[in-house]
Amino acid sequence: MIDLLAGFNGRLFLTVTLNGLTLAALYFIVASGFSLIFGLMRVVNMAHGSLYLLGGYVGYEVSVLSGSWLLALVAGAGAAALAGALLQKGIFGWMQGQDLRQTLAAIGVSIVLADLMLAQWGGTAYQLDLPAIFRSFVPLPVVNRYPMPRLMLIGLAVLIGIGLWAMLNRTRLGLLIRAGVDDRRMLEALGVDVPKVFLGVFAIGAGLAGLAGVIGGSVLSISPGEDARYLLSSLIVVIVGGMGSLSGAAIGALLVALAETYGLAYTPTYGVVYTFVIMVAVLAVRPQGLMGRPA
C-alpha cells in the first residue's frame, strides 16, 4: 500500500487529468454538433469527421494567408457550415425520414471528401499558429506549468456549451429545434418551415465540427485520418451520453476522453479498452445513453 502510494506520481496524475480535460473539451465541441444534427433530423452524419478536417484545413489556409487566427477560426467554421448546409440541401434533404439511406449517403460523402482533401492537402500534418498571447505557459501548483492553449480550449468548450444551451433554451430557433426533436410532424403542421430549420441546424452542427477542426489544428495538429478519429469519438460520446442531448454530450465527452487519456498514460497497450468498457457498461444499463430519452 505504501509502495503504491510512493509510486504514485501526483504531478503526472494532474498533467494527465488536464490533458484528459483538454481532449474532453475538443470531443465535446465535435460531438455536440453531431448530437444536435442527430437529435433533430435522425441523420447519423458519418461525414462529421470530414467536416472537422475541412474546417481545420480551410482555417490553416486562411491563417497562412491572412496571419489572423480569429479570421481562420471564422473561416474554418464558416466553410464547414456551408458544406454542411449544401449536403443537407443537396443530398440528405430529399431522403428525409429514410435514416438508413441518409447514413449510407453520408458515408459515401465522407469517402469522397476525405479523398479530395488528401488530394488537395496531401498526407502531411499541419499546425495553425496561435496568436502570441496564447503561446505561453500558465504557472499552476503541482504541475508547475501548463500550456495556455490547452487551458484556453477548456474555457472555449465551456463557453460553447453555455452558448448552445442558451441558443436551445432562450431563442426562437432553439424553441423550434426542441419542438422538432419532440414531434417533427406536429411542428410541420403548425406551419413552421421545417426544412429551413433543418438547414439551419445542419449548418450549426457542421460549423461546430469546423470550429473544432481549427481549434484542434492549433492545439494539436491536423492530418488525414483525424476525420475517422473524431467521427469515432463523436459516435462513442453520443452512444454513452445519449443522442440529441447537450448535457449528454458533455458527460460523454468527459468520460470518454478521461478514460482514453488515463488508459494511454497508465496502461499504454490497452488504453482504448477502457473507452469500450464504458460504452458497453452504459449500453447494458441504459441502452439510450446516460442522458438520452427512450426512443
Binding site: 443530398i91 439511406r101 449517403a105 458515408i107 459515401g108 460523402v109 469517402i111 469522397v112 479523398d115
Partner: peptide
C-alpha cells in the same frame, strides 16, 4: 476512393 465513393453515392441515391 473518389470514384468508388461517387459510385456508392449514386447507388444509394
Amino acid at each position: 476512393n473518389t470514384l468508388i465513393g461517387l459510385i456508392f453515392l449514386g447507388v444509394v441515391l
